[in-house]
C-alpha cells in the first residue's frame, strides 16, 4: 500500500513537473521580445514629452537654443550677439579646411555622402562593419587616416572648425538618427542612456542631474541647458572657454566639472552617449554652430 502511494505520488510529481515546464515554455514563447525589451522610439517620445511638459511655453524647436529658450534676458543678449556671432571666424576656417585637398589630392568631401554637405543631421551613425557608433568627429578623422593624413585632436580648434562648417550646411534640418535592427546598435543606444543617467565624479552628478532635473536653473553664473536638443547646437563657442569646442570637449569638460576623470575623447562611452542624446532629439533642427556663455 505504502509502495503504491509512493509510486502514485512520484507519478503526480513528474506530471506536475512536466506541466510546469510546458507552461514555462509556452510563457516564454508568448512573451514579447522580453520584459526588458527596448523601444527607443517610445523612449524618445517620453523624453520629449518630459521637456514639453516641464516648459510648456517653449516651442519644441526652440529647445535647440539651450538656455536661451528658457531665460528671456539671456535670449536678448544672445540675439544681439548673433549679429556678429563669435563662431564666425571658426566657421570660415572650417570652410577653408574642408575644401583644402589632402596630400593625395582627395578631399573630406570624397569621404561623405552628398560631398559632406547638409549631412550633419545624420550623425552619429551605427556602423555595422565595426559594430560601433561613428560620430561626425570620428568620421572626419577616419577620412583623414584613410587618405594618409594624421588624425587631428578631437578637442582642438580644427575639429571644431570643420564640424562647425558641416553643421552650418545642415542648419534647420532635423536630426535623423537611425537605430538599425541590430542588437549591437540597440546595445550602443542602451549604453549611451546608462551613461547619461549614471552619477559619477566626487560631486555625484549624472548628466541628467543638470540637464533633466535642473534645466533653466543657475549653477553659479551658468543657466543649465535642457538635454532635449542639447547636441543640435554643437559645436559651440563658449565664452568660458574663450573659443570653440567640439562635442568631445563638452563631454570631457562635463566630467571634469563633477570632479570625475574624463574618458579619452571618442571612447566608446562618449560615442554611445552622443548616439543616445542625438536620437532622443530626432526631429529637432540642427542649430550649430552655437554660442553659449
Amino acid at each position: 500500500m505504502a509502495t503504491r502511494v509512493g509510486r502514485t505520488g512520484r507519478r503526480l510529481s513528474v506530471r506536475f513537473l512536466l506541466i510546469s515546464l510546458a507552461s514555462l515554455v509556452v510563457t516564454l514563447l508568448q512573451a514579447p521580445a522580453g520584459a526588458d525589451s527596448v523601444d527607443p522610439a517610445a523612449e524618445a517620445r517620453a523624453f520629449r514629452d518630459y521637456f514639453l511638459h516641464k516648459f510648456p511655453n517653449v516651442k519644441p524647436d526652440d529647445f535647440v537654443n539651450g538656455p536661451y529658450a528658457l531665460n528671456e534676458d539671456m535670449r536678448r543678449q544672445w540675439e544681439e550677439k548673433e549679429q556678429f556671432p563669435p563662431y564666425e571666424f571658426s566657421l570660415e576656417n572650417g570652410k577653408e579646411l574642408f575644401a583644402r585637398p589632402f596630400a593625395n589630392g582627395k578631399h573630406y568631401a570624397d569621404c561623405f555622402a552628398d560631398q559632406g554637405i547638409a549631412i550633419r543631421q545624420n550623425y552619429p551613425q551605427f556602423d555595422a562593419a565595426s559594430g560601433k557608433v561613428v560620430t561626425l568627429e570620428l568620421a572626419l578623422n577616419q577620412c583623414r587616416e584613410a587618405n594618409g593624413e594624421k588624425a587631428i585632436s578631437y578637442t582642438g580648434e580644427d575639429m571644431a572648425a570643420l564640424t562647425a562648417y558641416m553643421a552650418y550646411t545642415s542648419r534647420g534640418m532635423p536630426f535623423d538618427i537611425k537605430i538599425p535592427n541590430d542588437p549591437r546598435a540597440i546595445e550602443a543606444y542602451e549604453n549611451g542612456k546608462r551613461y547619461f543617467y549614471t552619477r559619477r565624479g566626487q560631486l555625484n552628478f549624472s548628466c541628467a542631474t543638470c540637464h533633466v532635473q535642473n534645466p533653466g536653473e543657475h549653477l553659479r553664473a551658468e543657466v543649465l541647458a535642457p538635454a532635449l536638443g542639447i547636441l543640435n547646437a554643437m559645436p559651440i563657442y563658449r565664452s568660458e572657454w574663450g573659443g570653440m569646442g567640439t562635442t568631445s570637449r563638452r563631454f570631457i569638460s562635463c566630467n571634469s566639472q563633477v570632479r570625475g576623470v574624463p574618458l579619452p575623447p571618442q571612447s566608446d562611452e562618449y560615442r554611445d552617449l552622443e548616439y543616445y542624446l542625438s536620437y532622443v532629439s530626432n526631429g529637432l533642427p540642427i542649430s550649430g554652430p552655437g554660442s553659449r556663455p
Binding site: 523612449e43 517620453a46 523624453f47 518630459y50 542612456k193 546608462r194 543617467y197 549614471t198 552619477r199 559619477r200 566626487q202 555625484n204 549624472s206 541628467a208 542631474t209 533633466v212 532635473q213
Partner: peptide, 23 residues
Amino acid sequence: ALAKASIFQANSEKEAWKNLEIR
C-alpha cells in the same frame, strides 16, 4: 578612501541610474 568611494559609487549606480530615467 576617495578611490573606494568611487568604486562604491560605480557599483551602486549599476542599478541606481534607472531611478533617474525618464519613462
